[in-house]
C-alpha cells in the first residue's frame, strides 16, 4: 500500500506540536495533524485523555502552552489563530466556525426562542431584515427535522435530542467551513442518536464542511469520520483512516478500546 499523495495545496487547519499543561498534568502533548477542506476527523479516547482540552485549544477557546494552530481563512490564507487579535478570533468563531457543545445548554440561549437562536448568528454578521432571518431560520429548522410550529418556543421546552439538533442548525446557518463537535450524541438515547448521526452525516456530506468530532463512542466515528486519532493520556497513540484503525488496531490501548465495545 502506498502512502496517499498530498495534492491539496493547503490544509484548512494545521496543528503542530500543540501542548497544553494544567500544572503538573499534561492534558495534550505535542499533537500535530492537518485537516483538509471537507474532511471529518474523529478524536476518540477514554475519559480524561485530553480530547476536550484539545478541542478547546483548536477552537481558540484555550491558549495552548506550546505549538501552533493555523487556520486557512477565506481571505488571508493560513493564519496562526492565537496570533490574531481577540475581536478577529471572535469574528472567525462566529463566521467560519461552528461549535457544537456536548451540553446544548452551553451552546444555546435558553431564554430566546428557537428561531431567535438560529437567527442570532445571522444578526451577528449584520443581517437586518426580519423576513429574511425568519425564512432562513425556518429553512434550517426544516433541515434538522424540527417541527416548524415550535419555531417560537423556548429551547428549554425541547427534548434533549431536539435541543441538540437546534444547536446544530444554529451553528450551520452562516455556512461555516469548519465545525467542532464535542460529544454531539452524548446523553441521548440510541434511537435519537441514530437519527442525529444520520442527519449529521447528510449535512456534512451535503455542505462539504470539515469537522473535528470528539467522542468516546466508536459508532459515531465509524459513521462520521474519514480519519481517526486515538488519544491516550494526552498523546495521540494511533491515527489513520477510520476503518483501518478500527478494524486493525495496533496500539494496545486501541485494541482494548475496540474490544470493549458491547456487541448486542
Amino acid at each position: 500500500m502506498t502512502a496517499p499523495v498530498r495534492t491539496a495545496p493547503t490544509p484548512l487547519l494545521r496543528v503542530s506540536g500543540l501542548t497544553k499543561r494544567f500544572g503538573p498534568v499534561t492534558a495534550c502533548r505535542s499533537i500535530s495533524f492537518d485537516l483538509h477542506p471537507g474532511e471529518v476527523i474523529g478524536i476518540v479516547g477514554e475519559s480524561g485523555s485530553g480530547k476536550s482540552t484539545l478541542l478547546s485549544c483548536l477552537s481558540a477557546r484555550q491558549r495552548p502552552d506550546a505549538g501552533t494552530v493555523e487556520y486557512a481563512t477565506r481571505s488571508r490564507g493560513l493564519v496562526d489563530v492565537y496570533a490574531l487579535s481577540e475581536p478577529e478570533r471572535r469574528l472567525l468563531a462566529r463566521t467560519e466556525w461552528g461549535i457544537v457543545h456536548q451540553n446544548p445548554r452551553d451552546g444555546l440561549r435558553m431564554d430566546v426562542s428557537a428561531g431567535g437562536n438560529v437567527g442570532e448568528r445571522l444578526m451577528a454578521v449584520g443581517d437586518r431584515h426580519y423576513g429574511h432571518i425568519r425564512a432562513k431560520a425556518e429553512d434550517w429548522l426544516r433541515k434538522v427535522e424540527l417541527d416548524l410550529g415550535r419555531i417560537d418556543d423556548l429551547p428549554r421546552t425541547f427534548s434533549g435530542g431536539m435541543q441538540q439538533r437546534l444547536q446544530i442548525a444554529r451553528n450551520l446557518v452562516t455556512g461555516p467551513r469548519l465545525v467542532f463537535m464535542d460529544e454531539p450524541t452524548g446523553g441521548l438515547d440510541v434511537s435519537v442518536q441514530a437519527r442525529l448521526l444520520d442527519l449529521l452525516r447528510g449535512l456534512v456530506r451535503e455542505l462539504g464542511v470539515a469537522a473535528v468530532v470528539v467522542t468516546h463512542d466508536l459508532a459515531v466515528v465509524r459513521l462520521l469520520a474519514d480519519r481517526l486519532m486515538v488519544m491516550w493520556r494526552g498523546e495521540v497513540v494511533e491515527s489513520g483512516l477510520t476503518d483501518q484503525v478500527l478494524d486493525d488496531p495496533h496500539h494496545p490501548y486501541t485494541q482494548l478500546l475496540v474490544s470493549s465495545v458491547l456487541q448486542v
Binding site: 440561549r109 430566546v112 426562542s113 428561531g115 431567535g116 437567527g119 442570532e120 448568528r121 444578526m123 451577528a124 454578521v125 449584520g126 437586518r128 426580519y130 432571518i133 425568519r134 419555531i151 417560537d152
Partner: peptide, 12 residues
C-alpha cells in the same frame, strides 16, 4: 448582533 435578537423576539 445580540441586541437585534431582543427585537427579533418581540416581532416573533
Amino acid at each position: 448582533g445580540l441586541m437585534h435578537v431582543r427585537l427579533y423576539e418581540d416581532i416573533a
